[in-house]
């Protein structure tokens, strides 16, 4: 278990995100609703949703690399699809590593609210992986 992946950057704290592991050992990222993540009245801000998705993708990848001392990751790009407006309630996110190569990782992240099958947004990320410090 990696303490690193569970330690969020200051921006993760700013968004109020908490991390836990679910029963399948998947990292689950939860962002409570609040003024800081609010967009137009009654809805989440798309930027906050994108921030949550990125934190889930990067955290999940760092966790997968936890056994490799000195490994680090750096985002190259991210594409976010917004499927539904996020409402005034907790938002969850989890990520799946599609491929972890020697230099590049492909990661997908998903965000939902009350129903895990009804995504509000998803993201695809390419990240650079540096191994062995």
């Amino acid at each position: 278990m990696s303490a690193d992946a569970l330690t969020l950057p200051p921006y993760g704290d700013f968004l109020g995100i908490a991390v836990e592991r679910d029963e399948t050992d998947t990292l689950l990222f939860r962002m409570p609703f609040g003024d800081r993540v609010a967009g137009r009245p009654g809805f989440l801000h798309g930027g906050a949703i994108a921030g949550l998705l990125e934190i889930a993708a990067v955290g999940t990848l760092r966790d997968a690399l936890a056994e490799e001392p000195g490994a680090s990751v750096k985002p190259i790009n991210v594409t976010v699809d917004f499927m539904r407006g996020g409402r005034v309630r907790d938002t969850f996110a989890a990520a799946r590593i599609t491929r972890l190569g020697a230099r590049i990782a492909n990661v997908e992240a998903f965000a939902w609210q009350e129903d895990r099958d009804k995504l509000i947004a998803s993201a695809r990320m390419n990240l650079m992986v540096r191994r062995g410090g």
Partner: peptide, 13 residues
């Protein structure tokens, strides 16, 4: 280094 999330929010805006 600044997080990428706020930069996405800035560009969205």
């Amino acid at each position: 280094v600044l997080a990428s999330g706020p930069i996405i929010a800035l560009m969205d805006m």
